[in-house]
Amino acid sequence: MWEYTEKVKDHFFNPRNAGALADANAVGEVGSLSCGDALKLMLKVNPETEVIEEAKFQTFGCGSAIASSSALTELVIGKTIDEARRLTNQDIAEFLDGLPPEKMHCSVMGQEALTAAVAAWRGEDLEDDDHEEGALICKCFAVDEGMIERAVRTNKLTSIEMVTHYTKAGGGCNSCREPLEELLADVNAAMVAEGMLKPEEAFVFGAAPAPKPKKKKAQGFVIPDMPPVAAAPAPQAPAPIAITPLAAPAPVAEAPAPAGRTPAQEAIAIARVIEELRPVFKADGGDVELVDFEGGLVLVSLTGACSGCQLANQTLGGLQKRIAETLGRSVRVMPVAKT
């Protein structure tokens, strides 16, 4: 079991301000059932003074999610909206005397709910905001660019593992690995430019994975090895990934593919790889189809038992690798809904 601090235990076993707040005038909701945690923060703000007079929460989640929510309400009560909006997830974690690294996303969820509630109070349209903040990066846990950037900046995150601990992004199928790496590299680069981060600490896209930040707590779960998505796969040494019996000679012959293929030729090559791998998906009770292909992006639709299952995502990883080998450059395979 996790090593929770006494403070976390106290706020879990005796949550402060749990329940609904009937006359709330600023509400922030984040998370969802499928993500595994969700928080509804309800504030009663004095319209004159903008002081938060009451705060209550409803949380679906683990012990540290409930404790973080409880801490959040204690932190905001009595503060003005302006003061409250300056709170970060660090403040929540510190209030609880720390959280296990793998659970930091609980504190981030608290901050996100607060941001949403403040926006609601100000009458800002969060939906629009979301779009301005950028694209959805991680579909598994519905995490967008804005949330990742905030977490990276607030907590000086410099590895994908840390980003996953703090935002959950990348903790599921792992198909968002590449955009996640790009984003982390961009934000880190900006932080270096602003003097917030030393250049040698920054995450560099395509570089070898950053060394583990600290030695892990003994009982912690180790995130399984993630296959590094090479920015430019070395065409000379394709790892033998025999995902189908047919695989043996074909990819080796095609791997050092000349760059001279036209997009149409590439599309045909991709279609052929998919056709070859279809039996694998079918064996697992599903199917895969090529939907679209543009530049570095290959869109496929998954049906049957495949859609949404972890297994399909592993197989998708294999597919991505095979296509990359065939084309001699890196591509991203993304599952899309079939229309």
Binding site: M1, F12, F13, G36, G61, C62, G63, A65, I66, E102, C140, F141, T164, K168, G171, G172, G220, F221, V222, I223, Q310
Partner: peptide, 26 residues
């Protein structure tokens, strides 16, 4: 995990298929 923590407080040991106890996110 929340259920297990509360059970544990009452001296009852069980386990869960939930994400949070294993450290996995799913």
């Amino acid at each position: 995990e929340a259920i297990l923590l509360l059970l544990n407080k009452q001296g009852i040991a069980a386990s869960s298929g939930s994400a949070c106890t294993s450290g996995s996110l799913e």
